[in-house]
Design a binder for these strands. Structure first.
Length: 883
RNA sequence: GGGCGCGUAGCUCAGUGGAAGAGCACCCGGCUUACAACCGGGGAGUCACAGGUUCGAACCCUGUCGUGCCCACCA
């Protein structure tokens, strides 16, 4: 009954898989059927991942493709295992980035944001978001992201804005938010404060200039700041200058007199050992100024233009630098010629402008207690970091964190909820409070750092501060998966905020996630960091177009070791595409031959050796895949599946199946059933990585609803049939098949070397198959090695021996004796040196005395095998016709 | 300046104490009715270098060289 019906199932599949015709149809179906919508009322254990919200301005790049694929693998895997799975998507409003985009648009119309005013500008940004924002969301659909679209959030939507206000007020009331005049990192182009991590340091070439301040000489790379000097500092123990401490000297070009002070901060061994002190323009100097009660004189405005009265007023900082130097030189005060000096210079991470330290009034989060809690949660194991080595980076940062400057002089973002009254009152307005009104009241102009709202993401997206059902059920989240480059920006902030906001959940329940899984960066085929600026970026969308979403996903997942960087090139994607097609065709073969996934699997005693072998290998593979996914070893999970699929299932099992399928009967029926069951399980195992092709095939094979909601073959947590017997393996059958493989390979090798056409059937006599359970073993060898039954006039011209099995071949004509002799001789040499090595080892009392027993056993059998090889090869050589 | 990591086949990387591996690329032969996006066969490496520990080292230790990344308020 293999039957037209069965044939029609397989013949519905074309010989080449075309992703384009499958992907969008399936994705829409998955969403419509609600597979990705989490049920807050189910009694399954929860498995939750919040998507690191991409910027609203963003487009899907390879880094997203990598992380999204891995998150999708995890959530699909867990869903199949029986977890109530929630993967929550959303976007970040991305303060500076988005504001810049809209400002550029305005600029095309010849306008600046100041021309249209704050309200109109913010309105513009919302419009922009409406029209162009979130392109990445449709791109995520293309990739196959199984996110819960019904729970999509945006950091600026009403709920999340209320969360921001609540958090701000709570921190403020607890004294953890304060406003102060401090030196902060200032971008003179973006015209806003930046937090420490928004500053990127690079080694830039500058000039170190030594200036004589009368009795004492100082050195600086930022000459123009001397206009704001209010002291010179030396080390208290520096004898060279002890007599000068307390003295007043004249500051050149200004006519001001400034003191010489002693301060521990100064390194006497650097330069002249004397430091000019500019409290308004340098963080160290600011602190020295605090300690010595020095005035802070601001000499530059927010654009980096000199404001100090005098000849330099109005000059840009970089024009002022040579100008001031020239003026000093004219006075003969440049004592040492300026010399090139490479030093670290801070740049704005957004626009690369050189950051200017600037004294200004800003809002800060007092991080000490928050950071300590964030560190402790990892230290005491409530939150695990994968890979563990990365934890060190995390500790280094949270343990040495400075207070976090959270105010930004932007318009796009959460406006700081603080109102100032006419008499200097300060009122913080929570989400449910009335804002003060009346004359003289006005709200703070600044907005909050984007990372303030993203720090709330794991709970604000679930409804916090309202204690919603979602929040109760899905917090803490299970895994946070993101690139290691974002630990400080985001991960540490979520830790601090989560632990603080959710304290009432107790120590274990307050963490934002149980596990942090860090991924690497995406690199090109030569290991260089993939980026727009180096022009080596690969657009994942173009891969999806060319090779399909599955191939794209497999390519990135296959490269993903925990925390390891991923190298990608087109050849990788091509290979993946080829693999997907291979799987497609293996399934097509099975279906064309009536593979049956429904019939009960026959009792193992009724199965043939190849059947038991493939079931054994499948069970092993499934266990490995499970274990690797547990460890976030995506590359290894892909690898074992890949090898099982191609090397074992396709190259051997499918080939071995052809014979019984052809013969039909009970033998054929059993094979069809095993084929169906193995393929079924294989498609399920592959589904998390390559969801589209597996669903298409699985539905055709089983007639089931969708593999998305099919049970995982192993490790189920609740419900569903256990598909795979992972406990039972068949070691004897594994040995037998290994033997068969060795024989077949040896015959093929011989044939290739002798230049026989692959199609040519060679008469062969096979002997030495001892095992009676392998009734068809001989036929299988003949089938796979393209041999035929011995003819009546069979005359052996070559004999191959593998283990106990001997294959005599009649090439009905001379074989290339010289070639064969050379080959045998070479093999004999190898075997002899093998024997020598093993004998030497075993003859060494040190070895036999100290090496563990299994190693010695292994060496013994190695020796025995090599000795047997020598005997056999000598026999074969002797049997060759004389020259 | 501090910290972390890496150097294994032409390329990208597994392997972390007991016979050097995979994918891609390469060479030879094939349209063997699932798949030429395929099949069969093959070559390929002083495991960066130098010492040390060990019966035994790609693996552990020390040093050197090369290379990548992160952190950093020495003017």
């Amino acid at each position: 009954m293999t039957t037209d019906q069965d044939l029609s199932v397989g013949s519905a599949l074309p010989p080449v898989y075309t992703p384009g015709s499958v992907e969008s149809r399936l994705y829409e179906q998955w969403v419509e059927r609600g597979y990705f919508t989490a049920d807050v009322g189910s009694d399954r254990p929860p498995y939750v991942i919040v998507l690191p919200p991409p910027n609203v301005t963003g487009q899907l790049h390879m880094g997203h493709a990598l992380n999204h694929t891995l998150m999708d693998v995890l959530t699909r895997w867990r869903r199949m295992q029986g977890y109530e799975t929630l993967w929550l998507p959303g976007m970040d409003h991305a303060g500076i980035a988005t504001q810049n985009v809209v400002e550029r648009e305005l600029a095309k119309e010849g306008l600046s944001r100041h021309d249209i005013g704050r309200e109109a500008f913010v309105e513009r940004v919302w419009q922009w978001k409406q029209e162009y924002g979130g392109r990445i969301l449709s791109q995520m659909r293309r990739l196959g992201d199984g996110v819960d679209w019904s729970r999509e959030r945006f950091t600026m939507d009403d709920g999340l804005s209320a969360a921001v206000l609540t958090m701000f007020k709570r921190l403020f009331d607890d004294g953890l938010i304060y406003r102060a005049e401090r030196i902060i990192n200032w971008c003179p182009r973006c015209l806003t404060a930046l937090s420490d991590i928004e500053v990127e340091h690079s080694d830039d070439e500058g000039e170190l200039v030594s200036i004589s301040y009368g009795p004492i000489t100082v050195a600086t790379t930022r000459v123009e700041t001397m206009l704001g000097d209010t002291a010179v500092a030396v080390h208290p123990d520096d004898e060279r200058y002890a007599h000068l401490v307390g003295a007043d000297i004249e500051l050149p070009l200004t006519g001001r007199r400034i003191p010489i002070v002693a301060d521990e901060h100064v390194d006497p061994s650097f330069g002249t050992g004397a430091v000019k002190v500019t409290p308004a323009h340098d963080p160290n100097d600011f602190e020295i100024g605090q300690r010595h009660n020095l005035p802070a004189i601001t000499v530059m405005d927010e654009r980096g233009v000199i404001t100090a009265p005098g000849p330099f007023e109005g000059l840009d900082r970089f024009e002022a630098r040579p100008a001031v130097t020239a003026a000093l030189r004219e006075l003969g005060l440049i004592v040492a010629e300026k010399r090139p000096y490479v030093h670290a210079v801070g740049h704005c991470s957004r626009c690369d402008t050189v950051v200017e330290p600037r004294l200004s009034l800003q809002w800060f989060v007092k991080v000490e207690s928050l950071a300590k809690a964030a560190g402790d949660a990892v230290r005491d194991g409530r939150v695990a970091i994968h890979p563990p080595e990365m934890a060190r980076n995390y500790f280094d940062w949270v343990d040495n964190m400075h207070d976090w400057c959270i105010s930004r002089q932007l318009w796009w973002g959460h406006r700081i909820p603080v109102w100032y009254g006419p008499d200097g009152e300060t009122v913080v307005v929570g989400p449910d409070d009335e804002a003060p009104s009346g004359d003289g009241w006005r709200q703070d102009d600044d907005v909050l750092d984007t990372w303030f709202s993203s720090g709330l993401w794991p709970f604000s997206t679930l409804g916090w501060p309202t204690d919603t059902e979602d929040l109760k059920r899905f917090y803490p989240t299970s895994v946070l998966l993101t690139g290691y480059d974002i630990i400080f920006f985001w991960v540490a902030r979520m830790m601090m905020f989560g632990l603080y906001a959710m304290t009432d959940r107790g120590p274990a329940g307050s963490v934002p996630f149980h596990t942090i899984a860090l991924t690497g960066l995406v690199r090109d085929e030569r290991g260089r960091k993939m980026s727009k600026s180096s022009g080596n970026g690969i657009d994942p969308l173009s891969w999806i177009e060319t090779y399909g979403a599955d191939a794209t996903r497999f390519t990135v997942a296959r490269g993903a070791a925990p925390g390891g960087d991923v190298s990608l090139g087109d050849e990788w994607a091509q290979a993946s595409r080829n693999f997907v097609n291979k799987l497609w065709n293996a399934a097509r073969f099975a279906m064309l031959n009536g593979a049956d996934a429904h019939a009960p699997l026959p009792d193992s005693s009724a199965l043939a050796t190849p059947d038991r072998w493939i079931l054994s290998r499948l069970a092993f593979t499934a266990r490995e895949v499970d274990a690797h996914l547990h460890d976030f070893e995506f590359a290894k999970a892909c690898d074992v599946l890949f090898h099982f699929t191609w090397d074992e299932f396709c190259d051997w099992y499918v080939e071995l199946a052809k014979l019984p399928l052809e013969r039909g009967g009970a033998e054929g029926a059993a094979t069809r059933t095993v084929l169906g069951h193995v393929l079924d399980a294989l498609l399920r195992l592959w589904h998390p990585v390559i969801p589209f092709v597996t669903d298409e095939l699985w539905r055709t094979l089983t007639g089931g609803e969708s593999v998305v909601v099919a049970p995982w073959p192993t490790g189920l947590v609740s419900g569903g049939e256990r598909l795979l017997d992972v406990e039972t393996t068949y070691p004897d059958d594994e040995k037998r098949v290994a033997q068969l493989q060795a024989v077949v390979t040896e015959v093929r090798r011989f044939r290739a070397e002798q230049g026989l056409r692959p199609g040519q059937r060679v008469p062969a006599r096979i002997s030495g198959i001892a095992d009676s359970s392998l009734a068809s073993f001989e036929d299988q060898i003949r089938s796979l090695a393209r041999l035929q039954e011995p003819t009546a006039d069979f005359a052996e011209t070559a004999g191959l021996v593998v283990g106990d099995i001997r294959v005599a071949l009649d090439l009905s004509g001379a074989i290339d004796v010289a070639k064969e002799r050379a080959r045998l001789q070479k093999a004999l040499d190898v075997a002899r040196s093998e024997v020598a090595l093993a004998e030497q080892k075993l003859g060494n009392p040190q070895f036999t005395g100290k090496a563990p027993q299994p190693v010695i056993e292994k060496m013994r059998s190695r020796l025995a095998a090599a000795q047997a090889d020598v005997v056999r090869l000598r026999g074969q050589l002797d049997a060759l016709p004389p020259r």
